[in-house]
Simulated scan of single mutants.
Amino acid sequence: MYDEKLDRPDERVEVAPVRAGEELDWDALERYLRATVTDADGAFEVLQFPNGSANLTYRVALGEQMLVVRRPPFGQVAPKAHDMEREHRVLAGLHPVYPRAPRAVAFCGDTSVIGAPFLVSEYRRGVVVWDRVPDTMPADAGHQLGIAAVEALADLHAVDPAAAGLERLGRPEGYLERQVGGWTQRWQAVTTYDGPTATDAVADELASTLPVQGPAAVVHNDFKLDNCQFAPDDPTRVTSVFDWDMATLGDPLTDLGTLLNYWPDPAVVSILPGVDELGLPSKEEVVAAYGARLGRDLSGGDLAWYEAFGYWKTAVILQQLYARFVRGETSDPRMAGRGAHVTALSEHALHLLKTI
């Protein structure tokens, strides 16, 4: 049974003591950081960012210096997923031309240090919006928060990949076909259902109705409100965007479709408890703001395909998280309920595809 309280605690904290079972070799990590990072003096302390769902992310203090350390989750990892080397490359390239990307500090591919490749980046102070407007902002700031997030996404898609040194990050040609094929394989690897499902039906329908792909851009691949960090007292300013391990070059409308699938919609139960109460702009306003920022006309019917793709991809991700819980690869109790929305999201994706 899905327990919403596990995903919507009374008070979300930014960092917390490390969750049982998600400890790393702290001595080895400390030795690596002191040998690699400049000004790595002072006491070594670790706390965990507890609100993410997959990659294990920690705030490490070396005296006054704060760093973020990210590694893939324990256990079975889907091919090309949770790629810390890719995230480091993306941050290193984007930071100078898209300052919302945190500065990359180091990448360690030596799995003997903490058991997996890991990324080190700068730590930034700010607020992440989950299920309520932060107390540091006006209570009615939801609309501004939403528009700011959309504009941050549009600004990413306006980046020239060559200016960031990322022109070879991916292969834009055939991107949509590969995305559908790759996520279909991931679904088949983690499904616990007997017989055909709505998720299988969406995969078939997406593959048979691929839109004509637009100009390539740097694609985040998991862009959503809670992957944005805001200035504490300014709901119009996104200061950071997180979680770049799936970034590539491809059709930017997949990012917009992903964002829309996390947005409030009376036609489907949100997978983000509380998001309906934030006062965010409507989906129509989101699309209009995105198009206006880029000077792009999005009045055609293809956008429903991208939104359906977003719902379907999220359904697969939720099933992956649930499968990790079933296999005993995580001690996070929230993962027990991740499979509860899979069918509803897939059925909504089918509904959207019928509108094309």
Rank of each mutant, 00 (worst) to 15 (best):
86 R>T: 05
162 A>V: 01
172 P>T: 00
150 V>I: 11
120 V>N: 12
108 C>N: 13
108 C>E: 14
76 Q>L: 08
119 L>P: 13
130 W>E: 06
101 A>L: 10
70 R>Y: 01
88 H>G: 15
161 P>V: 08
117 P>L: 02
71 R>C: 00
76 Q>T: 13
149 A>E: 04
141 A>H: 12
75 G>H: 08
65 Q>H: 10
167 E>A: 05
145 L>V: 12
105 V>T: 15
157 H>W: 10
91 L>D: 09
57 T>V: 12
82 H>F: 13
153 L>I: 13
120 V>T: 13
69 V>F: 12
136 T>Y: 06
71 R>K: 04
62 L>S: 06
150 V>A: 12
57 T>W: 04
161 P>Q: 10
103 R>Y: 05
98 Y>N: 13
57 T>L: 11
142 G>R: 09
130 W>F: 15
52 G>Y: 01
92 A>E: 13
169 L>K: 02
166 L>T: 01
70 R>A: 01
129 V>S: 08
74 F>G: 15
96 P>E: 08
65 Q>D: 04
171 R>A: 06
143 H>C: 13
62 L>Y: 05
86 R>W: 06
110 D>K: 00
154 A>M: 05
155 D>V: 04
109 G>C: 00
171 R>F: 04
55 N>M: 06
97 V>A: 09
91 L>G: 08
53 S>N: 11
164 A>S: 04
95 H>R: 15
66 M>Q: 15
89 R>H: 00
62 L>C: 05
64 E>H: 11
172 P>G: 00
137 M>Y: 14
155 D>A: 15
164 A>D: 07
116 A>W: 03
58 Y>L: 02
126 G>R: 03
88 H>R: 14
59 R>G: 01
107 F>W: 07
142 G>Y: 07
170 G>P: 02
121 S>H: 13
119 L>C: 11
159 V>K: 01
121 S>Q: 15
93 G>I: 04
86 R>H: 11
96 P>Q: 01
147 I>D: 12
145 L>C: 11
72 P>M: 01
171 R>P: 03
146 G>N: 11
139 A>H: 12
172 P>R: 01
82 H>P: 08
154 A>R: 05
137 M>A: 09
148 A>K: 07
103 R>A: 14
87 E>F: 11
120 V>M: 12
147 I>V: 15
71 R>M: 00
114 I>H: 11
152 A>W: 02
52 G>E: 01
168 R>W: 02
117 P>C: 02
133 V>H: 13
126 G>P: 02
146 G>A: 09
65 Q>I: 04
140 D>T: 11
55 N>T: 07
87 E>M: 07
74 F>P: 10
154 A>E: 06
73 P>E: 02
94 L>K: 15
146 G>S: 09
81 A>W: 10
144 Q>H: 15
131 D>W: 04
80 K>C: 09
116 A>V: 01
140 D>N: 11
116 A>H: 01
58 Y>V: 04
110 D>I: 03
151 E>G: 06
155 D>K: 05
163 A>R: 10
65 Q>L: 14
135 D>A: 14
132 R>T: 08
166 L>G: 05
112 S>C: 03
117 P>Y: 02
93 G>E: 03
159 V>W: 02
120 V>S: 11
108 C>D: 14
158 A>H: 12
156 L>M: 10
113 V>P: 08
